[in-house]
């Protein structure tokens, strides 16, 4: 099951079973997003101060890939500038499209998220991996509408 092992790496399963930053804030920028074709849903909350993502939490329901990706994403963006977080989202999105981003990864550390690179071989699962990232992009791009 080597292709499956590419998809379900141990680090992904670890994030799925022991999600980081799972929970809610009483008062934070809140973004709800779902994947209407399969029912996955996420509520992402961001605390942004002076253009920096100082904290992030999420709750949601979904498959191992969508929940692990959310866990990893919150870890990766915490402490980052908003435009840096958006750059990461762009890089991740291109990684999912199967683009060669190895050189860029040297400059921009996505942390555990690089373990999701195997997802691009499973086209049906790419939208699972990108759900949390899309929520983050939506949140920081149009904060006035989603607050």
């Amino acid at each position: 099951m080597s292709s499956l092992d590419d998809l379900y790496r141990r680090v992904i399963m670890d994030h799925y079973q022991n999600p980081r930053n799972r929970g809610t804030f009483d008062d934070a920028l809140t973004i709800n997003m779902n994947n209407p074709t399969c029912g996955d849903r996420i509520q992402l909350q961001l605390k942004i101060e002076d253009g920096i993502v100082v904290d992030a939490r999420f709750v949601g329901e979904g498959c191992s890939i969508s929940m692990a990706s959310a866990s990893m994403m919150t870890e990766a963006i915490k402490g980052q500038k908003v435009d840096e977080a958006l750059k990461m989202a762009d890089l991740f999105s291109r990684m999912m499209k199967g683009e060669d981003v190895e050189e860029e990864l040297d400059e921009l550390d996505l942390g555990d998220i690089e373990a999701l690179s195997g997802v691009c071989k499973f086209p049906a699962r790419i939208k699972c991996a990108t759900l949390a990232w899309k929520a983050m992009q939506k949140g920081v791009s149009e904060p006035e509408e989603t607050k």
């Binding site: 099951m1 292709s3 499956l4 998809l7 379900y8 074709t37 399969c38 029912g39 996955d40 979904g62 498959c63 191992s64 890939i65 499973f122 049906a124 699962r125 699972c128």
Partner: peptide, 25 residues
Amino acid sequence: VHPHDVATVLDTFGIAVRAGHHCAQ
């Protein structure tokens, strides 16, 4: 095991099943 993960593993064996909310939320 989430049903999407079930369907993905089955697919690697050539077995096609549906996973999701089946248009019946």
